[in-house]
Amino acid sequence: MKDSARLFDFQAVNEDMVRRLFSAFDPKASITQVSPLTKGMSTSNYALRTDSGSRYVLRIYPANNDHSGIEAAAYQYAKTKIRTPEIFFFDDSKQIISFSYLIMVFIEGSTLGDFIAENEGCPDHVVHRIGSSLALLHQTKYSHMALLDEHLQIAGQLESFASQYYTLLNGLAGTHIQPSTKEKCMQFLADHAELVERIADKHVFSHGDFIFSNIMVTPSLEPCFIDYEYCFAAPVFYDIGKFFRTRTQVERYIGADTIAAFEEGYNRNAREPLPGEWYALSKLADISTMLHLINKSQIPDGWGSAINGEIEKNLKLLAGEAEPLLDK
Rank of each mutant, 00 (worst) to 15 (best):
K2P: 08
A12E: 13
A12C: 03
N14G: 07
M17I: 12
L21H: 01
F22I: 06
S23H: 05
A29S: 13
V34H: 03
P36Q: 11
T38M: 13
G40S: 05
M41D: 03
R59K: 14
I60T: 06
P62T: 09
A63W: 07
A63S: 14
N65H: 13
D66T: 08
G69D: 08
E71V: 10
Y75G: 04
A78C: 06
K79I: 00
T80Q: 14
R83S: 14
R83N: 07
P85A: 14
I87H: 06
D92F: 01
I96C: 12
I97Y: 09
V105E: 15
I107R: 01
I107C: 09
G109F: 12
S110F: 13
S110R: 14
T111G: 08
L112P: 04
F115N: 07
I116D: 02
N119A: 01
E120P: 00
C122H: 05
P123I: 12
I130H: 01
G131P: 03
S132D: 05
H138I: 01
Q139H: 07
T140D: 06
K141D: 01
H144P: 00
M145R: 15
A146G: 12
D149P: 03
D149L: 09
Q153F: 06
G156T: 05
G156A: 10
G156H: 04
L158T: 09
E159A: 11
F161S: 10
S163P: 10
Y165M: 14
G174T: 08
G174F: 10
T175S: 15
I177M: 05
S180A: 15
Q187N: 15
L189C: 15
A190P: 06
A190E: 14
A190L: 14
R198Y: 06
K202R: 07
D209Y: 00
M216V: 09
V217F: 07
V217P: 11
T218L: 08
T218A: 13
P219M: 11
I226P: 02
D227Y: 04
F232G: 03
P235R: 10
Y238L: 00
I240Q: 03
G241M: 06
R247T: 13
G255V: 00
A260H: 10
F262N: 04
N267V: 03
R268A: 10
N269I: 00
P275Y: 00
G276A: 13
W278Q: 03
W278T: 01
W278S: 03
L281I: 03
L281A: 11
K283Y: 05
S288R: 14
M290H: 03
L291F: 11
L291K: 07
N295A: 04
Q298A: 08
G302H: 03
W303R: 08
S305Q: 11
S305A: 12
A306S: 12
G309W: 02
E310K: 01
K313I: 00
L315M: 11
L315T: 10
K316Q: 08
L326N: 09
D327N: 12
D327M: 13
K328D: 08
